[in-house]
Amino acid sequence: MSTTTTASPNEAKLWGGGKSPFNVEYGKLMMWYFLMSDAFTFGAFLISYGTVRFSTNGWPNSNEVFRSFPFAPEGVHAPLVFVSVMTFILIVSSVTMVLAVHAGHNMDKKGVVRNMILTIIGGIAFLSCQAWEWNHLFHEGAWWGRNPFLNADGTASSTNFTNFFFTITGFHGFHVFSGVVINIIMLIMTLMDKFEQRGHYLMIEKAGLYWHFVDLVWVFVFTIFYLL
């Protein structure tokens, strides 16, 4: 039994210099900083939405705007139902991503592959839901610059509502799309045994950080647009 790997962290000369202050790999640290900057981007979007809403007297009632779901019978309205499904899809795909990272820690290639496939399916399902909702709203007459909905109190509404909705959910949807692409690349690399050759699955962890961030942003977007 080789005992060279049992050296205590104090003895380990990480990166050949002094002790690593953060004890994480470079790429993972940079992923964290990228996500922090992305958090400010989304924060700026959502805060500008809040500022405009606070400076306006009326605002559409989200329960009257987002009340449809696929295959709904004529005239049946169910506010919050479809968006709850979308939220749970994203939570579940986040869980499968954690399981993929966990399998990667154990060098369990099969587990990584299975959970990455599930995560990708979850991402695609979420994007499909969003595409359906956008399409539906578009056919109701909503788009950038066009707002068919009235304020909750029956007064005329401005286009701020639809502009913010399509911009912010669109930006988030594009993040989901990028995440799915990244996850597919990670899946292919796993299948090609890239990570087995490297001896670690750190790339899965980095892709996982990004994917969880996308889920995190949805927590805010979902609450702010559909509940508040």
């Binding site: 953060f22 004890n23 640290l29 900083y33 400010f40 809040g50 405009v52």
Partner: peptide, 28 residues
């Protein structure tokens, strides 16, 4: 993670306290 790493992520995000407060107040 190591505490130093946590701090480099969390402390900058504290800007949001000012960010949210100031801008919503401005809107109102």
């Amino acid at each position: 993670e190591v505490k130093n790493l946590i701090m480099t992520i969390i402390v900058p995000l504290l800007l949001f306290v000012w960010f949210i407060g100031a801008f919503l107040w401005d809107g109102g």
